[in-house]
């Protein structure tokens, strides 16, 4: 399998362990990722607050680059995934708008065609029949006994018309991956909710409350760790967990993994190779479960 990899900004910045573990997962699975080094930030739904056409032009350019490579595009961030799908929808649904966007791109040598390639999150790739078979064949160290709670990230679920999950209100794609890896999925209500990250600069208390409610829900449901497909969720749930812990009477402490870390652990890589020592909340307790 060969894909154009749209890393997103955060996997190159504050969550470099996501990039590291993605490449290890790809290596272990024999997936060929061609990094899209000239693709711009997706704008995370923030550039579009300033100028919706600008955001769509930048994202149409990104999709056009994958089209030029004739490769399906893979994201490793729920937000990037949802934002790129939104641009695809905006541009595909209005021929006049598509022409306008392509006029902006023309001088840079790119043209958005639309409908030529798929835009998928890494979790969607692994969740296909082919992906699950590949995982099944390559698992070297089943994660037996590890209770994992998925945290999907809003943008891969809503709006549901753009989601790649069959039932975005009750998705099972990540849990199916967990099972193949030998882990035990934990189903809890908050797994499809917001982590609060988008308002962390505007309404910190509400942001931390949202994250805290999700973490407590996962802990109360018996999870050993939360696994997310979105680095922004990871920052909210891991980097700010000490603040969240202080705000909650019950307190909370639970390791947060990126999905590719969990995959690569099952492929036999060590936590150090996957940057798990970089997390704010120690993942050491997971080693004990897995040994």
């Amino acid at each position: 399998m060969k894909f154009a990899l749209f890393t997103g900004c955060v996997a190159k910045g504050a969550t470099r362990e996501l990039m590291l573990s993605t490449m290890k997962s790809a290596e272990g699975l024999g997936i060929d990722f061609v990094e899209m080094k000239s693709a711009a930030c997706c704008g995370a739904g923030v550039v579009s607050e300033k100028n919706p056409l600008l955001a769509d032009a930048l994202n149409a350019r990104t999709i056009a680059i994958a089209e030029e490579q004739n490769l399906d595009l893979v994201t490793i961030c729920s937000t990037c995934q949802g934002i790129l799908k939104k641009t695809e929808c905006h541009v595909d649904s209005d021929p006049t708008y598509k022409e306008k966007v392509n006029n902006v791109l023309e001088e840079g040598g790119h043209q958005y065609a639309g409908g030529k390639i798929k835009i998928q999150h890494f979790a969607n790739v692994l969740g296909t029949e082919e992906g699950l078979k590949l995982l099944r064949d390559k698992v070297k160290r089943p994660l037996t006994g590890l209770k994992t709670a998925a945290f999907y990230g809003c943008y891969v679920l809503r709006p549901s018309e753009l989601s790649l999950y069959e039932d975005p209100d009750n998705p099972t794609g990540m849990e199916e991956i967990f099972e193949i890896l030998g882990a035990t999925p934990v189903y809890y209500e908050s797994r499809t909710k917001c982590c609060g990250f988008p308002i962390i600069m505007m309404n910190k208390d509400a942001s931390h409350d949202m994250a805290g409610n999700a973490l407590i829900d996962a802990i109360d449901s018996g999870a050993d760790c939360v696994v997310t497909g979105c680095p922004l969720c990871h920052l909210s749930l891991d980097a700010y967990q000490p603040e969240i812990d202080k705000m909650n009477k019950k307190g909370c402490s639970i390791p947060i993994l990126h999905l590719p870390q969990l995959v690569a652990l099952a492929l036999g890589y060590s936590p150090q190779e996957l940057g798990m020592d970089k997390h704010i909340i120690s993942t050491a307790r997971l080693d004990k479960i897995l040994t």
């Binding site: 900004c9 955060v10 190159k12 910045g13 504050a14 000239s38 711009a40 930030c41 704008g43 995370a44 923030v46 550039v47 607050e49 300033k50 100028n51 600008l54 930048l58 600069m201 505007m202």
Partner: peptide, 20 residues
């Protein structure tokens, strides 16, 4: 919120990606 949107947009303009 507004400063965040402006800073974000400016960051993408100067480097194509976010300066976190």
């Amino acid at each position: 919120g507004a400063r965040h949107a402006l800073s974000f947009t400016k960051s993408v303009k100067s480097s194509g990606s976010l300066n976190e």
